[in-house]
């Protein structure tokens, strides 16, 4: 069974066509990197899997069933824009808010609920860190806390939207290793979107590259090639391999680096709203 199946899908946001004629199937247990230029629809793709953006055409199936909002089998780590609120609230209470968070009543947790919080904190090894106020945590520590929160409810599919954003290379590696371990231990399928391919090399099984309203799914060797990326960017793209790293170049400049720094995620998100 495929974890995610897109059949002839068209996604539009506020009248703007984001993705058209999308067809792919992601096998269960895969670790997939979602890449592409800003505004190519990486977040929109994830929100469609979550049932938050209904397809204008075609069908999306998630773990064998039509995509619907509130699917408990999906763990989701939203993009952090501008950081978490500067609260004295402990990391544990922040993570805990996701335990049965959709149910009415007081936010008091049963023995099972507390055990679930401990379980996810231990999986990421952040139980001690979670005692501290989230205002005092570094970017990397917050990302690990958010990752723990995404694991509440034992999801079979993890959607991680830009978990590497604003992390230095050392913390990037840390987060990716963590996700790799989780995938192996829990047998979950993982979709991770990122601006850069290189940190993901060696960790991911496949990549989905978005661009020009299209998507290409395959192994890194199949997708990260001049012809495929030229089609997705709509311009001539060269792919250069240097010492185990891969650079996607347009007219002699790296397309990933340019896109990275001035938090383009903000722009992408605003368009979505």
């Amino acid at each position: 069974m495929s974890a995610i199946e897109f059949r002839d899908v068209r996604l539009a946001l506020g009248g703007r066509l984001v993705l058209a004629d999308i067809d792919f199937a992601i096998p269960s247990g895969d670790f997939v990197g979602v890449l592409g230029p800003n505004g190519a629809g990486k977040s929109t793709l994830m929100r469609a899997v979550l049932g938050l953006v209904p397809p204008a055409r075609g069908t999306i199936r998630v773990l064998g069933r039509a995509a619907t909002r509130g699917n408990p089998a999906i763990g989701y780590m939203p993009q952090v824009r501008g950081g978490l609120p500067p609260l004295r609230l402990s990391g544990r209470d922040f993570v805990a808010s996701a335990v049965d968070g959709h149910r009415l009543g007081l936010p008091l947790y049963s023995r099972a609920g507390r055990a679930e919080i401990d379980r996810v904190l231990d999986l990421i090894a952040v139980r001690d860190l979670a005692r501290r106020p989230i205002a005092e945590l570094s970017g990397g520590e917050r990302q690990r806390l958010l990752l723990a929160q995404a694991l509440i409810g034992r999801p079979q599919l993890l959607l991680l939207d830009e978990p590497l954003i604003s992390l230095d290379p050392h913390h990037e590696t840390e987060v990716i290793d963590l996700v790799k371990d989780l995938r192996r231990e829990l047998g979950v399928t993982v979709l991770l979107s990122a601006h850069e391919l290189n940190p993901l090399l060696g960790a991911i099984d496949r990549v989905i590259y978005l661009g020009n309203r299209q998507a290409a799914l395959g192994t890194v060797d199949e997708v990260i090639t001049g012809p495929v990326l030229s089609r997705l960017y709509g311009s001539d793209i060269d792919v250069v391999h240097v010492g185990g790293r891969i650079f996607v170049m347009s007219g002699g400049r790296s397309v990933e680096r340019d896109a990275h720094r001035h938090d383009p995620a903000m722009a992408e998100h605003r368009e979505m709203r």
Partner: peptide, 20 residues
Amino acid sequence: IISRPLLFASLQPELAEAKG
């Protein structure tokens, strides 16, 4: 009555939305 989902929606709006 609404404090639990309200807390979730206040701290993590996008995740809460995804969870229904």
